[in-house]
Design a protein around this nucleic acid. Structure first.
Lengths: 225, 225
DNA sequence: ACAAAAGTGTTCTCGATACACCCATGC
DNA sequence: GCATGGGTGTATCGAGAACACTTTTGT
């Protein structure tokens, strides 16, 4: 069945940049394209928006279908609409930024593993369409928002140590931070709850575990550096 | 002639929030809708994206066609895609934020004056679709960006006095600022050029006129408060 | 006892804020 | 000469940055 309109319409897709921390590296989930155009290249997960879903629902659905992921934090990034960005015709893509702790992302193994992989943001493969640009923007946005929001917590599981949180800021921000200043900074945000639990890692003093108070991303004005 | 596709496609439009300062008030340009849906309501200028133009070009073209405006600063704001936002069917709108000094906007008079008007951001009429939400977001974005960019200058003509610049920050930020601190703040950005000219306004000391060095919006980290 | 990570305070610098007076002009 | 807006400097406060040692645990 064909769908006909009086004027030409672009196709609308979502593309999702899923970031997580893996082996102490900022990493992105990519899918290897089996078909032309760009067969063999790697691409962001995503796909066409359906008639009755919001853009955000569409992004979540595609992510679920293509990667098995669910339970990720999602926010709109930017809309890419260069007429020539897809050789098949006019495709406008609403890009989303997604964040999740690696633990929440094990379902990745449930999908076709050959076609799905994590890549370090510093070592990207050849990418399809303008996906490298989208990724670069997502990374810049994430980095910028660390400094005035609690976005970093979305890369951690529900409970975490102070050191793990600091590593998020260090890895994403690409600079080492002073332990005492960092703790002072985080405490000044008043968003941490002690869980009372501790975690033993090795032959060391056990670390206190914390939890974020509330699940909303909070915006503040201080710098996290 | 009909355009047919294998899957249904949404229509894609741009909507433009044009801000300017008028009578010391932040104001928006709106168009009165002649036809249903929302006949008689006011709406943001905008319209369908054509097959061979970028989203930004489409926004500029619609602005030109509907309001006669050209030479505005434009940046992408957000993409609105609720399935029910337009009663005629699925319409996804890429919203743009536009800024310009009132002087650059006189062409407004060239259009159908009955259907076009400026409204104070504080006193909006009944608006069509989700345009009130779009406008609210645009305003929040503008206000936030004042504090870490040179966006405010886009609301001023090429040359301006220090006091005019301060008024932009005060009106958009909705708070009065100290004259000396404000000058110190602006100077620390190192983006001002003296023109050497002065402007006489009334029975007062003439004010020095400045110009922004370069036309690009610059991002900084200091606060403008 | 020692190796390794957890945890804690103080000092300094610099940007943000508060605040009051003289200057140039038109009438 | 006076009313009006244009223009300038200093003192205080607080956040950001630099910096070193003690504590707890496993082996």
């Amino acid at each position: 069945m064909q769908h006909c309109y009086d004027y030409p319409r672009p196709a609308v897709t979502t593309d999702i940049v899923v970031f997580t921390l893996r082996n102490e590296r900022l990493s992105v989930l990519l899918i290897r394209r089996a078909r032309d155009p760009y067969a063999g290249y790697w691409a962001l997960p995503g796909g066409f928006v359906e008639p009755d879903e919001t853009l955000e629902r569409g992004a979540l659905r595609e992510l679920q279908e293509e990667t098995g992921l669910t339970q990720v934090y999602l926010e709109q990034l930017y809309t890419f609409g260069e007429p020539q960005r897809d050789p098949r015709g006019r495709v406008i893509s609403v890009a989303y930024l997604a964040l999740a702790p690696l633990e929440a992302l094990q379902p990745v193994a449930a999908s076709d593993a050959a076609a799905l992989d994590w890549f370090e943001a510093e070592h990207l493969p050849e990418m399809a369409f303008d996906h490298r640009d989208i990724l670069a923007l997502a990374r810049a946005r994430l980095r910028a928002k660390l400094n005035y929001s609690t976005l970093a917590f979305k890369l951690l599981p529900e409970t975490f140590t102070f050191h793990e949180l600091q590593r998020v800021y260090e890895i994403v921000g690409e600079q080492e931070l002073d332990k005492r200043n960092f703790r002072k900074f985080i405490r000044s945000l008043n968003v941490l709850q002690e869980t009372g639990e501790t975690r033993r890692n090795g032959a060391h003093k056990p670390a206190l575990l914390y939890r974020l108070a509330g699940s909303a991303v909070i915006y503040h004005d201080r710098q996290g550096t």
